[in-house]
Write a protein that binds this DNA or RNA. Structure first.
Lengths: 177, 177
DNA sequence: ATATTTTTTCTTTTTATTCTGAAATTTCCG
DNA sequence: CGGAAATTTCAGAATAAAAAGAAAAAATAT
């Protein structure tokens, strides 16, 4: 597939943004490509379209699969794996937040808890310990917020936050809970 | 200053987390150190404590200053710059979100707008353009949410989100708006 | 079963980032 | 003004991350 100018701009920019947020550029590009394509693509086609190594695509797809951002589908009469992602931005957002939470936030919470549950507690300045506790509290509260928000359907959330007027067709469309 | 075991664990972990979110490790470590210290420190002391090059500290502090996460203070009878950060987690969070918004979200919005305002529009698949538009809508709505949330004082936000019961001393303390 | 296609793994190369150390610059004190 | 202290800049070294390419493995067809 030959990328048209606007699609290319989108995909390349997404790759850049990925880098800035700690996501491998190729991983981000592949996801952007599948998102824009809106249809399953096989690895070789992705390889050609992005102009990267086949092995790189394989590795990156594995990562996207592990984050549940991409799934494998099969097309009739084609033995190759095809890959697709959701075109629902709200669903994608939820998956991304959930993934980062599991991979980064939860481990951080564990570290902070182990800090506050350490035998070396007396050695530390009490105000330091207070700040570590405040940090832990804050992160736990924040993840609780996030849980609440992600559970809501978008339009409920909009209303809750008093943004009713700004609700767009985009988010209004996909809602079932 | 010699880092005590728990502080060291915190600072090193914060550095790791920074890396995963696209923040230079030294930058994150310095911020963590100033946060735990809860007092102004001069660059040389930071250098010694973290065991990195003086120049690295200088560069990293400049970055933290540009993000408004750290400010310079002067101590009586000491001509050197001293650096301190807020110990208010909510305030820090707001500064971090605001910074990333300016540096990454706003430029992305510009790119998406320019995509949708391009002379090459006809060449693209209409469904692709729809998805780009949906992405733009989503990001704009999300930043509007974030603006709303960050404007609230923490306790109001808790109540709004129905998390009243979980509100902690941590966030209850610093509220004036 | 064997050959072919497809996918994955693994090592090497390349690229990008981070960090250092030396030199240059700035600040500010007597 | 000097001149010492403090800070910044910058070129190069070290490190880490990303990507490529070759080889192995797996899957599927004949």
């Amino acid at each position: 597939m030959e990328l048209k100018p606007i699609s290319e701009r989108f995909v390349l920019h997404w790759g850049e943004m990925g880098s800035r947020w700690g996501v491998n550029r190729t991983v981000a590009q592949i996801h952007a490509l599948l998102y824009l394509a809106g249809r399953p693509m096989e690895a070789e086609e992705i390889t050609q379209t992005l102009g990267v190594a086949r092995s790189n695509v394989s590795t990156s797809l594995k990562e996207l699969l592990s984050w549940k951002l991409v799934r494998i589908v099969h097309l009739r009469g084609d033995r190759r794996d095809h890959f697709e992602t959701s075109t629902d931005v709200w669903e994608l957002f939820k998956l991304i937040v959930e993934g980062r939470r599991q991979r980064e936030i939860d481990p951080t919470i564990q570290v902070l808890k182990s800090c506050l549950d350490s035998p070396d507690l007396e050695a530390e300045d009490p105000s330091t310990l207070t700040r570590i506790r405040e940090t832990l509290d804050f992160i736990e509260i924040l993840t609780a917020w996030a849980d609440e928000m992600l559970r809501l359907k978008p339009e409920t959330l909009m209303k809750t936050l008093g943004l009713g007027a700004k609700i767009s067709q985009t988010l209004r469309r996909n809602s079932a809970d």
